[in-house]
Every structure is written in C-alpha cells, then in structure tokens.
C-alpha cells in the first residue's frame, strides 16, 4: 500500500495536467526505509513525447546524489499516460528498476477518469496496490516540493 499526503497527489496531478499532452515524470523522495514520500522533485522528460518519458540523465544523477546525501531514496516514481489507462505498459515494466519504489501512473485523458494508480514492479511482475491518501487536516510537516 502507498500512503501519501493529498498535497503530493495534487502536485503530481497539476504537473501532469500542465504538461499534457506531453508525458510528465518525477520522483518523490523519502527517508530511506520509511516508505513515506515527502519531497517531490519534478523531472525533465528528455524524450518530450506523448508516448514516452525518460528522466534527464544529468538531472537524475544530481537528484540521486542529493537523495543519497540526505539519507533518502525514491519512494515514488511517477509519470503520466496521456491517452491510455493508468496501467504499466511494456516499456514501464522493462525499465522498472527500483524494487523499493511505488510506481505511480497519472492518466490525463478524461476518458480514463483521472484515476491515479500505484504499482510495485519487480522482475517483470506487476502488483497493483491501494493508495491511502492522508488529508489536509493532518500535519504537513516535512513535505516539500522542489521548484
């Protein structure tokens, strides 16, 4: 199960809608081993495509180094599907390489009801998981978004 604050969900949705019809992507870091996403970092999609995304490798190196220095790991890796459902594609499965991460997909086509879904992907196996959203009345301490 992915437990995530609603502000992070809203930030992912806003980014995905803003980038539509280009696929959006990013990472939410959290303290290693905590399984709690807290610091959202939008990533540049170097593919700049409606059907593919790839983190900018240079930005990825800097972000991963920063996470290591802060004792964090990528708790959530997210991207949008701009004209299909929020289910991992063959390429999503091929590239999935963070066994501890929740892979979140945001559909931006209204016909897919904008329903965000979360998956674990390991060795080609996909397991969908529930998303538990923490509401606005709970503490927002520790949440941050990198501009």
């Amino acid at each position: 199960m992915l437990t995530i604050h609603i502000e992070l969900i809203e930030a992912m949705l806003a980014q995905a809608n803003q980038d539509h019809p280009i696929e959006t992507c990013g990472v939410i870091a959290g303290i290693e081993g905590s399984d709690i996403p807290s610091r959202l970092i939008p990533m540049r999609n170097v593919a700049n495509s409606q059907t593919f995304f790839q983190f900018d490798p240079q930005q990825q190196l800097q972000v991963w180094k920063e996470m290591a220095a802060r004792g964090e790991e990528p708790v959530v890796i997210y991207h949008s599907h701009t004209s299909s459902s929020a289910y991992p594609s063959r390429t999503d499965i091929e590239y999935a390489s963070e066994p501890q991460s929740h892979y979140v997909i945001i559909p931006t086509d209204p016909s897919y009801k904008r329903e965000i879904r979360s998956f674990r992907i390991l060795h080609g196996m996909i397991v969908e998981e529930r998303i538990r959203i923490l509401d606005k009345h709970k503490s927002t301490a520790g949440l941050s978004k990198v501009a």
């Binding site: 696929e23 593919a47 059907t51 593919f52 990825q60 991992p88 063959r90 390489s97 963070e98």
Partner: peptide, 14 residues
C-alpha cells in the same frame, strides 16, 4: 563511477 538505471517508460503507441 556511478551506475544508475535509466528511469523511463510511458504508454505504448496505440
């Protein structure tokens, strides 16, 4: 020397 799996994916062409 740092090794990082590329993070990529996306929907397939319909």
């Amino acid at each position: 020397l740092t090794i990082l799996p590329a993070v990529a994916g996306g929907q397939e062409k319909v």
